[in-house]
Simulated assay, not measured.
Amino acid sequence: MTDNLFQPYALNNSLHLANRILMAPLTRCMSDAELVPTQEMADYYARRAGAGLIISEATIIRPDGQGYPNTPGLFTPAQIIGWRKVTDAVHNKGGKIFAQLWHTGRVAHPHFFNGQDVMAPSAVAVEGSVPRMRELTYVTPKAVTHDDIQQLIQDYSQAAANAIDAGFDGVEIHGANGYLIDQFLHHDSNHREDEYGGSPENMSRFALAVVDAIIDRIGHERTALRLSPGAYFNMAGDKRDRAVFDYILPQLERRHLAFLHIGIFDDAMEFDYLEGRVSDYVRKHYQQTLVGVGSYTPDHASAAIANERFDLIAIGRPFIANPDYVEKVRQGKTLTPYSDDMLSTLF
């Protein structure tokens, strides 16, 4: 039984979802050369408007945030106009959509922004090369200055305002999965000794400043955040990270976000310093709207929601394979299996 997945859900007084199934952000690398969303992208998202809420693919807030080819932006007029085509298409189908705001930090590559500095909390490189462009190996980033940090906060805020101008219903700040904000929250990537490093309060300062700036700009009811307390992607775990998230989660609860979204590829993963699964750890420290994710089947997601482990479920790859995922689950139809071959086109 999966009936609870199809119950309406109120994020707050101004945003109501038709069901509890979210489309997770899925990087597709399909924007044009100027990082402008295309008509094909608008059609792709519109076909998935049956989700209670779509969270867009990660969208960069400024040029030096780019770490993958053809990922869309939200910092030029043309990009805003392109996204307006997407949001109009989704709204015309009765759906809702948030923009995920992104800066990749130390996994950006200067190839994408004319050889300028790569920005990160500390001058600590990540190993490896750019996905889809393996000839590009990662470089040692520049440790951001205080002026850089203030500009980044402003740029996140402006991107949120641009998202509203583009017709989005709200934004999800990407603070997870080893990207810029997450890099401030983990000891592996944050070696700072100033007010942005060292202690849980200091390491949380940048993330909270971004959240507060966006709330001030567009309202708490339209502001969400994705977090990865468990370091697992382009990041090594450290038992000291636990204290950072013990600190930041109650701070976030006070801000009455639209939702908090867990960043994990597979929620079956366990972390010693979190005493188990990330979702169980977060739920113990955060009692407002929580979005689970990570290889859940409809039955398992329904059971997790029934057991109050989280309130909403975000579905990723199955939405690539099944534009009509929600209706298929509702009607008990067989889902088309996901295949990596599907990544070559938008359908």
Rank of each mutant, 00 (worst) to 15 (best):
G105M: 02
P77E: 14
Y138S: 07
I81P: 04
T71P: 02
T76M: 10
G73S: 08
H111P: 01
G82T: 10
I60Q: 12
L136W: 08
L74A: 12
A120M: 02
K93N: 14
E135S: 09
Q116C: 04
F113T: 02
F113G: 03
N70L: 15
V90L: 06
I97D: 00
A123N: 10
H103G: 11
K96Q: 11
Q66T: 10
T87F: 03
V118Q: 03
R84Y: 06
V139H: 14
V118F: 08
H103F: 10
P110T: 01
I97M: 15
A120P: 03
A78S: 14
G67Y: 02
I80L: 09
P77M: 05
G65N: 04
I80C: 09
T59I: 03
T104D: 13
I60T: 14
A123W: 05
W83K: 01
T71E: 11
Q116N: 13
G115V: 08
I80M: 09
P63V: 08
P63K: 10
G65K: 07
P63N: 07
P131T: 11
P72A: 08
D117L: 05
A125L: 11
P131H: 12
V107I: 15
T76E: 13
G95Y: 02
P72Y: 06
V130R: 08
G128P: 10
P110S: 02
P131I: 12
I97V: 04
G128L: 07
L74W: 03
P72W: 00
D117C: 06
L101T: 06
T137Q: 15
V107N: 02
A99C: 15
